[in-house]
Nucleic acid binder design. Structure first.
Lengths: 180, 180
DNA sequence: CATAGTTTTCATTATTTATTGAAACTTAAA
DNA sequence: TTTAAGTTTCAATAAATAATGAAAACTATG
């Protein structure tokens, strides 16, 4: 199978973006390719479609699996492994978020806590600690919130998403109610 | 000035993370260094503190300025330029968000729109377009929301942040009100 | 307008990261 | 148990990215 011009452009774009989302170009391309391809693909088909080596595909698959972005499927009477996206677009976006949180935010929070609990010895250290505290609080808020969003039911989520500029109004509303 | 062990660890960590947030290791270190240093620093001080070349610092400064993360200050009677973070931690986080949106999401949205408006010629293209449409909608929602958050007053923002698990309740509440 | 302090540029070099492909490994079926 | 279809590994190589530092370009000041 050969990609149409538009689809090719999309896959290449995923490559460019991929490197900004935590994996490298090739892996981004693989991900994009699997997303726009209706049928699951074999490793060789992926290699052909992207003109990359079989070994490279194998490594990419391993990586995409570690991000829980693709799943393996089997076809009866066929020994090859077929790969497909592991869920909807929304699922995948969530996975990338979760995974990046695990790889970036969590270690950072841990380092910040280590630094903050220590007694500051002088003014410079005191200032540095204040700053780290701010970063820490910000990251913790983000963490709490992302966990919160994932806990919402799909209906609530949709409701929230549609809210848009209404969010401010709802907040004001809530405050008014609470004051009573 | 030489960094304390803890502060050094923080700066190095910023370096590691920096590469995941859109800039390279050195630039991440520079950013971290400026954040935990109370007084604005000269380019030479930065170079010394991080043991990197003067030229490298110059390039890093340019990059950090393009992200609007640092500002220049002058001291009367001193020809050197002094650099400091451009705003609070929250401001900086916002900038990184905005800037990444501009560099990653916007071009992606544009490419997706180009592909979606085109008439699909066959089933494969039709499927690909559906998927792209989903990505498009997701990204647009994210975009709308981030714009929304930036429009909130600091008080509203804080109120929202404190809401935490209350968000579900407020949503349900809102729905109930609307139904009446 | 010459100078000295300072910053920027950019060709070269160093480092890091990604890719290849042949060999090793795995496994279902004969 | 052997075979062959398929997958993975990893040392070698290629490609991309970052860092250096000397030279060029600025720019306040006398």
């Amino acid at each position: 199978m050969t990609l149409s011009e538009k689809n090719y452009a999309f896959v290449m774009h995923c490559g460019e973006m991929g490197s900004r989302w935590g994996f490298n170009r090739t892996i981004g391309q693989m991900c994009g390719l699997l997303i726009i391809t209706k049928e699951p693909m074999t490793a060789n088909e992926i290699a052909d479609a992207l003109s990359i080596s079989r070994g490279n595909v194998s490594m990419g698959i391993k990586e995409l699996q570690s991000w829980r972005l693709i799943k393996v499927q089997h076809i009866p009477g066929d020994r090859k492994e077929y790969y497909a996206p592991a869920g909807t677009i929304w699922d995948m976006a969530n996975r990338v978020f979760e995974e990046r949180k695990k790889r970036e935010i969590d270690p950072t929070l841990s380092l910040l806590r280590d630094n903050i609990i220590e007694q500051a010895h002088n003014d410079d250290e005191r200032f540095a600690q204040q700053q780290m505290q701010e970063i820490h609080d910000l990251l913790e808020t983000v963490t709490k919130w992302s966990a919160e969003l994932q806990r919402l039911s799909p209906e609530q989520l949709q409701s929230l998403m549609k809210l848009g500029s209404g969010i401010g109004k709802v907040l004001d509303f809530k405050d008014k109610i609470l004051k009573k």
